[in-house]
């Protein structure tokens, strides 16, 4: 909507996410971002959440970790993410509170709901931000995001429309910590029944039973074309196990059928920002780098000393991964064992 004098747009809102009634960790990363912005603007931070029978302790935890207010809209129809009822409820919250800024995580939910709602509001929306700030004189939200495979950083703002909306790359900041003695208001409201009708029906959720999922793993081990054969995926899998990590793959590995598509990292796969990324035989094509270069620490193993991956790595070993990876796995298992005996 156009920023007009009649409406005053105020406060920072984050979209907290839940699954099966439990507040998801990514919500706390948004609280950290939102708290910083709210403090800079001298305004309040609210968390909105949509679901069914959301755990009350989880709502309190949002307060404990930085929210001044939690607005929880509940209905049986909101148990699973469906864009139409979620969008209707989010528009209701915007109508009630007129937030100046809305942040959501760049998850499959955030990246579906936010553009849908932004269109309805004629609001500006920036995708997948890695940094956010407030412009000193105007008070506008500066939204900073990588583009063109991470080759540029673009700063985007929304001068004349409100609310200012952005999705934020998961893991691009740490979750907010609990602060003792914080208090805030928890508003639980039933979703307006007439807004819940949708033309999409949830039929089933099929859980991926692998122990770690790429999107929320702290540590990711990735195999590239350098593993040479499908059966050699085990070299990466063993290192992943030793590091308690999720297993990812470059596009070549998935195209050859050595691992399935949900493992793919890069422009045509997933974007990850783990604390630790370890690449085995990953050359580092521009598409791959786009999906992982904001990882906190990057370790690479490759036979080619000029491989692109070394340009974004913190530490790398030039050599044969079939020698190095098993030795590294053994060394890490030893460290793990030492750690557990000293504890």
């Amino acid at each position: 909507m156009n920023k007009t004098a009649e409406t005053s747009w105020n406060g920072v809102f984050i979209l907290a996410e839940q699954f099966a009634g439990r507040v998801l960790p990514v919500s706390f990363e948004l609280l950290r971002r939102g708290r910083e912005l709210a403090d800079t603007c001298g305004t309040t931070l609210s968390a909105m959440i949509f679901g069914h029978e959301i755990c009350r302790d989880g709502l309190q935890e949002l307060i404990d970790c930085g929210a001044d207010r939690v607005v929880a809209t509940e209905a049986a129809e909101l148990e699973h993410f469906l864009v139409e009822p979620y969008a209707a409820c989010m528009l209701d919250v915007v109508e009630q509170y007129h937030p100046d800024i809305i942040l959501a995580a760049a998850t499959t939910t955030g990246r579906t709901l936010m553009p849908y709602v932004a269109v309805k509001l004629h609001a500006g929306l920036t995708a997948d931000c890695t940094e956010l700030a407030i412009e000193a004189d105007s008070g506008n939200l500066l939204q900073i995001r990588p583009a063109i495979g991470g080759n540029i950083l673009a700063t985007i703002k929304t001068p004349d429309h409100r609310p200012q909306m952005a999705t934020v790359r998961p893991h691009s900041t740490r979750p907010a910590e609990r602060v003792d003695g914080r208090s805030g208001e928890i508003v639980c409201q039933a979703a307006p029944a007439d807004r819940l009708a949708g033309r999409v029906e949830h039929l089933e959720f099929i859980a991926d039973d692998s122990p770690h999922h790429l999107e929320d793993a702290d540590v990711v081990v990735v195999v590239g074309r350098g593993i040479k054969k499908g059966e050699n995926v085990s070299v990466g899998a063993e290192l992943a196990e030793a590091l308690d990590a999720a297993l990812g793959a470059s596009r070549e590995v998935v195209d050859r059928g050595w691992l399935t598509y949900p493992h793919q990292i890069g422009l045509s796969g997933k974007t990850v920002t783990p604390r630790l990324y370890v690449g085995l035989g990953v050359s580092g094509s521009i598409q791959h780098l786009a999906g992982m270069q904001t990882s906190e620490t990057i370790v690479a193993v490759n036979t080619d000393a000029d491989a692109q991956i070394f340009q974004v790595a913190d530490i790398g070993i030039v050599g044969d991964l079939f020698e190095i990876a098993p030795a590294l796995t053994a060394a890490l298992r030893q460290v793990k064992q030492d750690n557990s005996t000293t504890k």
């Binding site: 500006g124 950083l153 985007i156 703002k157």
Partner: peptide, 16 residues
């Protein structure tokens, strides 16, 4: 609604 106000090359902070 949005305006690109700046394009910059990301600082390469890592030295492998």
């Amino acid at each position: 609604p949005t305006r690109v106000v700046k394009i910059e090359r990301p600082k390469v902070a890592r030295e492998c």
